[in-house]
Write a protein that binds this DNA or RNA. Structure first.
Lengths: 167, 167
DNA sequence: TCAAACTTTCAATAATTTTTGAAAGTTTAT
DNA sequence: ATAAACTTTCAAAAATTATTGAAAGTTTGA
């Protein structure tokens, strides 16, 4: 496998993984491209390399910036804007965990707390609803608390902790 | 919030979370419905409650069974088949983690190993490709190893471990 | 063996999501 | 103030994914 084959394989695999996890393909592929690029890339560069439109590129770069894993960079004396990705894998993981918690997990936890907190009328179906949503609430809340713990630690805490758990 | 409101809120929230994480809405909602149902449900029951077609119900029940989180149950003397979900939250988590690892994470790890293992021709772009995909490989591999550790422990290992980390 | 009761399959259709591209918007240099 | 260089927006189109429903398939009891 030469450079080009490896690059293309990485970009398409990352795009496919994104799709599987609810992230659109273009967004994941732009991230992959920037992740392995030693230099900042312009919008033109990205459009050209991934064969996608200007609008698509613009919208997905905005999303990546909203997620805090891609940044704008201006080269002095140039009108064009360039983009770079966060290059540290731990920081990438922290940022993704933080955003998914904030946008997706926390709102669900809130609903689980509300639902499991309804008044128990003593019927079997109400008992079961309360019992099962409470169990889910407790699991989700522990997992989320841990994720946020991770997010607020220094960058290599993850690795150290995982290593301790694994061995 | 009464029983019906709480039930509907739980089912639609679970469906929406599924969608966000790449799981189809019907599949997530069928799971939610079975999760809180004190009794096994027939295909008719599910179609009726969620207002979805027979075909859709059948296909998504199959997927839930493939994931190992829903089971068929036959009531003696009845022709119809009934369905129940795994009721233990830890077992649910283990099973989902195990399947996502097997189907989605492991294949990506394999690609990351291949890509990061290409011959280094000493160019800046090849250096960066290798360095960045290797970092991703190491993170993904640690995370996956931990997940599988979790999967192969007794059911309450997760809770104990999370508790240790959080406190 | 037949037929009733039930489930699965799958081609067609519908719904949703993504992508495009051109117009509108913005910034900067003169 | 103008225009060139660039980015963003958004309605329309395309692509993808989910859903339907009827035909085919299966199982069971008589």
């Amino acid at each position: 496998m030469n450079y080009t084959e490896a690059k293309d394989k990485f970009i398409s695999t990352w795009g496919a993984l994104g799709t599987l996890w609810g992230i659109n393909k273009a967004m994941a592929q732009i991230h992959a491209l920037l992740w392995i690029s030693p230099e900042p890339l312009s919008m033109e560069d990205i459009m050209e390399e991934l064969q996608i439109s200007r609008g698509n590129t613009s919208m997905n770069l905005r999303q990546l910036m909203d997620w805090g894993i891609v940044f704008k960079e201006s080269k002095p004396g140039e009108r064009k804007e360039y983009f770079v990705s966060e290059k540290d894998v731990q920081e990438l993981a922290r940022q993704v965990a933080k955003e998914r918690s904030r946008r997706e997990i926390k709102p669900v936890i809130k609903v689980l707390r509300e639902v499991s907190g309804i008044e128990d009328d003593g019927t079997k179906k109400t008992d079961e609803l309360i019992k099962q949503t409470k169990a889910l609430y407790e699991l989700a809340d522990s997992a989320d608390t841990m994720m946020n713990k991770v997010v607020n630690q220094e960058s290599n805490w993850i690795t150290k902790t995982l290593m301790k758990l694994i061995k």
